[in-house]
């Protein structure tokens, strides 16, 4: 059923600490490593050793630069670089689930994890359209939708030592920037972290009620240094990105009108 459960017994999810994440991408690799050989279809790569390799990932790390506004006391505030891991937020009002025509996408009543039953997925891609976070990726090899399972095959897995019964990304993070727990329990590690550090939702205006929370970075560099002239910039002009083939012809034809 792709209607959402009214409530879930637990709200399992992640806290991601943007203050501590060092952008090493270890979570990306351990996620791909675990999930390519466990739950569901493997996470395929296309042309992996070629010039234009692509592949399916359930967790990707972006990097953003935040430039504070200049003030009279800080005329040249330093920009801050923030590494930003992003995976499924296991939303309470998951729009990806309700749009699914086959019932392949569902949210579990017992713990709130959003999953895809790949045997029912027709690969229409509508759930990925409905997700504002880019958490779902269609696997180019299997033609089914892949997404973060919160390592459902680790967290309850009694064949693993107890210390390993958490998502692969959390287990591997060398900076301790990722935390796993139950947000329905106000005393849990993740609930307390969220309360203490002002854990935030991504795109709250989209009304998805994400479970995962992000801890904002603390302001770091208070030094005021004027920007140096970048002598290399003129030599690093962007490479032209021209379309090829039919699209190139269409582009030129439309330019001539």
């Amino acid at each position: 059923m792709t209607t959402l459960p009214k409530t879930t017994n637990k709200k399992l999810g992640l806290v991601i600490d943007l203050d501590t994440c060092v952008g090493c991408h270890a979570c990306v690799i351990s996620c791909k490593g675990w999930n390519t050989e466990n739950y569901g279809a493997p996470l395929s790569d296309q042309d992996p050793y070629g010039a234009e390799s692509t592949g399916t990932f359930l967790n990707r790390v972006h990097s953003y630069e935040v430039q504070p506004l200049a003030t009279s006391t800080m005329p040249h505030p330093a920009a801050q670089l923030i590494h930003f891991p992003k995976s499924c937020l296991h939303c309470e009002d998951a729009p990806c689930v309700t749009v699914c025509p086959t019932g392949a996408s569902y949210k579990r009543e017992e713990d709130g994890i959003v999953l895809v039953n790949e045997a029912d997925c027709i690969g229409c891609g509508l759930c990925a359209w409905a997700c504002p976070y880019g958490a779902r990726e269609m696997d180019a090899q299997e033609g089914v939708m892949k997404k973060c399972t919160l390592c459902v095959d680790r967290i309850y897995n009694e064949n693993l030592p107890e210390i390993d019964r958490e998502p692969a990304c959390v287990r591997t993070c060398p900076a301790g920037a990722r935390h796993f727990g139950d947000f329905a329990d106000p005393e849990s590690h993740v609930s307390r972290l969220t309360a203490e550090r002002g854990g935030m939702e991504l795109m709250p205006e989209q009304g998805t009620k994400p479970v995962n929370r992000y801890l904002p970075p603390r302001p770091k560099d208070r030094m005021d240094v004027p920007q140096l002239t970048d002598t290399l910039a003129p030599h690093l002009a962007p490479v032209a990105d021209e379309p090829k083939g039919f699209m190139n012809w269409l582009d030129k034809a439309l330019d001539r009108i």
Partner: peptide
């Protein structure tokens, strides 16, 4: 981009680096 990253309170947010050098499904 400010609500997407939640980082808008600290200043102007700019995408600095994408997750991978290549393209992807998204």
């Amino acid at each position: 981009i400010a609500t997407a990253t939640g980082l808008g309170e600290g200043g102007t947010v700019r995408a600095f680096e994408p997750p991978h050098t290549g393209t992807n499904y998204l």
